[in-house]
Amino acid sequence: MVRVRHRLGNREELLGADRHREGEGGARRHVGDVLMTPPDQSRTTDIVPGPGGVMTDEVGVVTGDLTLRTAISGGDVVLSVQYKDADEWYAVTGGKAPVTDPAALDAVHTIAVGLLNRPEG
Rank of each mutant, 00 (worst) to 15 (best):
E13D: 02
G16P: 11
T67I: 12
E22P: 14
N10Q: 14
V54W: 00
G9S: 04
G75N: 09
H30P: 14
L105Q: 00
E12K: 02
P49Y: 01
V54M: 04
G74C: 10
H20N: 08
P39I: 06
D33Q: 14
L35T: 00
R21A: 12
A27I: 13
G9P: 02
H20A: 09
G16E: 15
M1T: 11
Q82Y: 07
D85Y: 05
G94V: 07
Y83F: 08
A97G: 04
V31Q: 14
D18G: 10
G32Y: 13
T110E: 09
E12M: 05
H20Y: 06
A17P: 15
R29P: 08
E22G: 10
T37H: 04
Y90E: 06
R43A: 05
V31P: 15
V54C: 05
E120C: 06
V62M: 07
D46T: 13
D65P: 06
P38E: 13
D40F: 06
A71E: 08
D40A: 02
G94W: 10
D65T: 08
S73H: 09
G50R: 12
A112P: 09
G60V: 11
G16M: 14
S73Q: 13
D85P: 00
D18R: 14
M55D: 03
G74I: 12
G23L: 15
T70E: 03
R118H: 09
E12N: 01
R28V: 12
R69I: 03
E58W: 06
G95K: 03
E24N: 08
Q82W: 10
S42H: 08
T56P: 00
V59N: 10
R19H: 12
G52T: 11
A71L: 07
R21L: 15
D87W: 11
D106I: 03
G64E: 12
V48K: 04
S42E: 07
K84L: 06
L116G: 00
L66E: 02
A104S: 14
A107L: 12
V54K: 00
A104R: 14
P39G: 09
T44A: 04
N10M: 09
E24L: 11
A71H: 05
G74N: 13
T56Y: 00
L66P: 02
P119S: 01
G32N: 15
T110C: 01
S73P: 10
A91W: 04
L15C: 08
V99E: 00
A27P: 15
L8W: 03
L115C: 01
V2N: 11
L79E: 03
R43T: 03
V2Q: 13
Q82I: 10
E120G: 08
H20M: 09
R118Y: 05
G94Y: 05
M36N: 15
G52H: 14
G32R: 15
H30A: 12
G75P: 07
K96L: 05
S73G: 06
D76I: 01
D76Q: 10
S80H: 02
E24I: 12
N117M: 07
V78C: 07
L35C: 02
